[in-house]
Amino acid sequence: MDVYSVVQGLAKNLDDVCDPVFSKRMLGDGIAVEPSNSKIFSPVDGKIVMFFETKHALGIRAKDGAELLLHIGIDTVELNGKPFKEKAKIGDSVSRGDLLMEVDFSMIKKLGYDTTVMLIATNRRVQLIKDTGQISINDPVFTLL
């Protein structure tokens, strides 16, 4: 099953993320994106199974059981949800391309935080399709193995 980008921007390999939890793949493999748009979309058809109270991260279980973590920014948990406007909630069924949230990335930057968005497969191995260069939400980024 292909997994699609959650945000438009510049894709980069997880090795280049400045947080070792992601760069060392402690939670799983995936990609990172420097966002150029404030909208975050669902990468697959599935269900929202986790949404941090601080709104900086959420979990999606795909229809085939794959679990995906979407983490917005680095250390943005400290912002207590201020730059995040959720459009989905725990228990919602979502389709690939559905709007999940809007993020004020300019606020995150202004407060000195990294805006990198990570998309991680937590219970599956991945085969990368695209992890560098410009990317849109219609681009597949990895295949779940």
Rank of each mutant, 00 (worst) to 15 (best):
D29W: 00
D19L: 02
K24M: 02
E67N: 07
K85C: 14
G91R: 13
Y113C: 14
P83E: 09
A57H: 07
G46D: 05
K110Y: 06
E67A: 03
K55R: 14
I137P: 05
D19C: 02
F52G: 13
L99P: 10
V7R: 06
K47I: 10
V103Q: 08
L70Y: 12
F52N: 13
T122F: 09
C18D: 15
R96K: 13
G112C: 07
R61W: 02
E78I: 15
R124V: 06
N37A: 09
I74T: 14
A32Y: 01
K82G: 13
S5I: 00
V49R: 08
D45S: 06
K47Y: 07
L68T: 02
V33M: 00
R61E: 11
I72A: 06
K39Q: 10
L27R: 01
Y113R: 11
N80R: 11
G65F: 01
S93D: 14
Y4H: 03
M101H: 12
L111Y: 11
L10M: 09
L145H: 14
S38C: 03
D19H: 04
R124D: 11
I40E: 07
D2I: 05
S23W: 00
V33F: 00
M101S: 11
L128M: 11
S95T: 10
L68S: 03
G112Y: 04
S23G: 01
D98E: 12
Q8H: 08
S36P: 01
T76D: 11
I74H: 14
K47D: 11
V103D: 05
Q127I: 12
F41Y: 12
D2G: 08
V103L: 03
K63V: 07
V77N: 11
A62G: 12
L111H: 14
K89F: 12
G91D: 13
M118P: 15
P20E: 05
M1Q: 09
G133I: 02
L145K: 10
V6C: 07
K47A: 08
E53S: 14
D2F: 07
L79S: 15
H56F: 05
L79Y: 12
M50R: 15
S36R: 08
K39T: 08
L68E: 03
T132K: 14
F105L: 00
G97V: 01
L58G: 10
V126M: 05
V117G: 04
K39I: 04
